[in-house]
Simulated assay, not measured.
Amino acid sequence: MTMTESNSSEQAAEFPCPKVEPQKEHEWLHKLLGEWMSEMECSMGPDQPPMKSTGTESVRSLGGLWTIGEGTGDAPDGTPVASIMTLGYDPQKQKFVGTFVASVMTHLWSYEGTLDESGKVLTLNTEGPSFTGDGSMARYQDIIEFISDDHRILRSRTPGEDGNWTEFMTAHYRRRQRQAA
């Protein structure tokens, strides 16, 4: 046995990986699994018409503990956009956690959130670049609401100057029906 192999074995014995069982919150995330079509409407600012676009999302499981959603669509200027959203549940924090990245931005969005009592609405809190463009950071929420097993809505919002939440994006996701073989 080489010195490297010996050290690896000793380290594995010192730091064993405990077996992790999915919680009911992980099972809730499994409702996201599958192929989805999306229709999005985004506010482009005061006195401007909303931008509408369509896209797709493919959501898979990672070990039963995480979901990975890979989305495609178009930016307001027609540029193709790809995105990845990861979601999981951290039993120690008792919070849903995750990240979001997109091909048209450099910020890594980190999520932490909770499920409402109805079990239909997951509110994810995050922080990112302010829409003011002054380099400051702002608070945001992405809210996932299940209307049915095959229809969910993603809403994005940020606090306005008055402190009340202002919704700036709504996307309807509808499960793509499997075609008969």
Rank of each mutant, 00 (worst) to 15 (best):
M137K: 05
K24M: 01
S8Q: 13
T158E: 07
E161S: 11
S83A: 11
H30G: 14
E5L: 03
M37S: 15
T170F: 06
A181Y: 10
E117L: 04
D77I: 09
E27D: 09
E5K: 03
D90C: 08
D77N: 13
V59Q: 06
G45M: 08
T99S: 14
I144T: 12
Q141C: 04
P91A: 14
S156W: 06
L65E: 02
T56G: 13
M51R: 01
L122K: 09
P16H: 01
K95V: 01
L108I: 15
V81K: 02
T56I: 02
R60A: 15
G73C: 05
G71K: 03
F131S: 04
T2M: 04
A13T: 00
K52G: 00
T99R: 09
M105S: 14
K31A: 06
E27H: 08
M37I: 12
S9D: 05
I84Q: 14
P46S: 15
G163D: 02
H30V: 10
A12S: 03
E70I: 04
M137V: 14
G45E: 03
K24R: 00
E57S: 14
P46G: 09
A75L: 04
V121D: 03
M37L: 12
E117K: 08
V101E: 08
L115P: 07
L154K: 03
T79V: 03
H30P: 09
R175A: 06
P80L: 09
I147P: 06
Q141F: 04
Y89T: 01
G55D: 07
K95M: 06
S8A: 13
V104W: 11
V20T: 01
S103F: 06
M3H: 14
W165Y: 01
F146D: 14
W109K: 14
G63D: 01
L108K: 12
F100N: 13
D116N: 15
S148K: 01
H107W: 13
N164E: 13
M169R: 10
